[in-house]
Structures are given as structure tokens and as C-alpha cells.
């Protein structure tokens, strides 16, 4: 279980996050949702250990890890731009961490990740030869080989084409379920957040606006921000799609 208690962060006297309290259960997929500049990436970096908190505590399984450096926390991240190493091929990227920690994954496990993410045929390719979706899968595999205790994903879908998005979503869900892996995802897309995760954390202006299961957020939005910015967008989308399908439905009905 990951726990944040009264975490605060500010840069040059500008408060980014104030008094964040949060609990994430093992194996949960949690999305951090909010507009640009709301502090969601900072929150992710705090959990990762890249940025130190000004005050407050971060606990993992009851242990205080606030001052534990990034490398020792055992969490891992896939960045928005994947940060794949262009001088190495796909296979060498995936097994990069094994050079430092040879015992962390066995060959069978590595093969399993490669199979699961459908990368078998791309192993000898250069990074530039891959499409966006393939890069994302390589980055996921490379991270999974490190057996992270928590998987962090920074905007994992925003750089992908519409068609690929759904399949990557399924892969993320599959990984989280199969390995009972706590996964934290940063996103600015409400649809993505609500369809992908067990719980959604809505952040606005450095504060938690609402934290709950997707269903809760839809049925009982706690404030105006959630209503106007999150639900409104979804409703417009829903109406558009309904209008689209309704037309064709009435058309088929009439034909019958």
C-alpha cells in the first residue's frame, strides 16, 4: 500500500501541491487526472523519488520512504516520450537493466514479457524503425523486466493514434491484473482515466478535487470543477456518439 500524508511541494515560492493525502491499495490502477499545470506530473515525480517533497511523508507498505533515493525505492516509470536508447536495438533496450542486476528477471520471464507485448518479431530492429505503439510496448517491457513494485506511466496514451490507444489500454490492464501490480497513470483525458482505472484522482490547482472509483465520480461529483470540466466533456462526447449510433439504429429499425 502506498500512502501520502500531508505532502507539499513548491518551486520558487509558487505552490504546486498543497497538503496531498492519498492511499493506494496494492494492485490498483489509479489515474491522476487534471488540466495542464495542475501538478499531476509533480505528484508522479514525488512518488518516483525524482523530486523531493518539501514536507509530509510518503509511506510504502508502512515504511517511510520520503528520503529514500529514487534508485532504491524500486518503483519504475515509463516516460511520455518513452526515453528509449536509440543506440541500442529493441532487445538490448528491453534487457538494459539486466546488465546491472542480472538476477532480477530470468530469461523465461523476459521472454514472457516479449510475448505478452507482441515484440518477438521486432527484437532486432532499431528504435527509429518502430511506430509509436511499438515504442510504448518496448518501454513497458523494459520497465517490467525490472520488476517494479509500483509502475508509473506518464501520459502513456497521448502520443498514440486513436486505434492503437485501445489496445495499449488493454495491455496495461492485463499487466496490472496478471502481475498484481500497482499502477499509477498520469493523464489529462477524462475518458482515458475513467475507462482505464480502478480509481481516479482528480487534481486541480495543487489540491485533490475528488478521489474515487469511476462510477462514484460519474454519479456523485463532489464539486463544480469535477462537474464542469470532467463530466461535461464526457457528456458532450457521449451525446455525439449517441447521436451517431442513434441515427444508424433508427435506420435499421425502420428497415425492419
Amino acid at each position: 500500500m502506498l500512502e501520502l500524508r500531508h505532502v507539499k511541494k513548491s518551486y520558487d515560492n509558487v505552490t504546486i501541491l498543497e497538503d496531498i493525502n492519498l492511499e493506494i491499495q496494492d494492485g490498483e490502477i489509479v489515474s491522476i487526472l487534471g488540466p495542464s499545470g495542475c501538478g499531476k506530473t509533480t505528484l508522479l515525480n514525488l512518488v518516483l523519488g525524482l523530486t523531493p517533497a518539501d514536507s509530509g511523508e510518503i509511506l510504502f507498505n508502512g515504511k517511510d520512504i520520503t528520503n529514500v533515493p529514487m534508485e532504491e525505492r524500486g518503483f519504475n516509470i515509463v516516460f511520455q516520450d518513452y526515453a528509449l536508447f536509440p543506440n541500442l536495438n529493441v532487445y538490448k533496450n528491453i534487457t538494459y537493466g539486466l546488465k546491472n542486476k542480472p538476477d532480477i528477471s530470468t530469461q523465461e520471464e523476459v521472454d514472457e514479457f516479449i510475448e505478452l507485448l507482441g515484440l518477438r518479431e521486432h527484437l532486432d530492429k532499431k528504435i527509429e524503425q518502430l511506430s509509436g505503439g511499438q515504442k510504448q510496448r518496448v518501454a513497458l517491457a523494459r520497465t517490467m523486466v525490472m520488476k517494479p513494485k509500483i509502475l508509473l506511466l506518464d501520459e502513456p496514451l497521448s502520443a498514440l493514434d486513436g486505434v492503437i490507444k485501445e489496445s495499449i489500454k488493454e495491455k496495461i490492464k492485463e499487466i496490472a491484473r496478471d502481475f498484481h501490480l500497482t499502477t499509477i497513470i498520469v493523464t489529462h483525458d477524462p475518458e482515458e482515466a475513467l475507462t482505464l482505472s480502478d480509481k481516479v484522482l482528480i487534481v486541480n490547482k495543487g489540491c485533490i478535487s475528488q478521489y474515487g472509483a469511476p462510477q462514484e465520480i460519474i454519479t456523485t461529483p463532489q464539486n463544480n470543477f469535477v462537474k464542469e470540466f470532467i463530466l461535461n466533456q464526457l457528456e458532450i462526447k457521449r451525446n455525439n456518439i449517441f447521436a451517431l449510433f442513434h441515427q444508424s439504429m433508427t435506420a435499421t429499425m425502420q428497415a425492419v
Binding site: 519504475n76 516509470i77 542486476k101 520497465t143
Partner: peptide
């Protein structure tokens, strides 16, 4: 890419490495 160092250090690299 500015994330390389972070990524590599999560994979157990030192900065020099």
C-alpha cells in the same frame, strides 16, 4: 532526451555508466 538519465538510473546505472 532528458529522461535518459532517470530511466537508466532506475535500471541500476550510475551516472558515469
Amino acid at each position: 532526451n532528458s529522461s535518459w538519465e532517470t530511466t537508466a538510473s532506475l535500471m541500476g546505472d550510475t551516472w558515469i555508466k
